[in-house]
């Protein structure tokens, strides 16, 4: 599961940059921005559970 996360994020990043190029050349700037925003939110949604798990393990480990 772990390495797939990085591949998924990389895939979303590449896809978003390609879509942005296409949208920019076809003249729709605001759509390009919306697409990259959506891609970023999707990626963040994937990462947040891992970050939460990391911080809870650290809190539990060091009894903070």
């Amino acid at each position: 599961m772990t390495i797939q996360l990085i591949f998924k994020i990389a895939a979303v990043g590449i896809l978003v940059s390609v879509i942005n190029q296409v949208l920019k050349h076809s003249g729709r700037e605001e759509h390009a921005f919306l697409v990259s925003l959506a891609g970023l939110l999707l990626v963040l949604m994937w990462i947040v559970p891992y970050i939460a798990e990391l911080f809870s393990t650290i809190m539990k480990l060091f009894e903070m």
Binding site: T2, L5, I6, I9, A10, V12, G13, I14, V16, S17, N20, S36, G39, L40, V43, L44, W46, I47, Y50, I51, E53, L54, T57
Partner: peptide, 22 residues
């Protein structure tokens, strides 16, 4: 992704740090 989309580069490095520590 550093050239095209720097924010995704940051997301990937954040994910890598978190995974390695897990």
């Amino acid at each position: 992704m550093k050239v095209g989309k720097p924010e995704f580069a940051m997301a990937v490095s954040l994910a890598a740090c978190v995974l390695i520590l897990l």
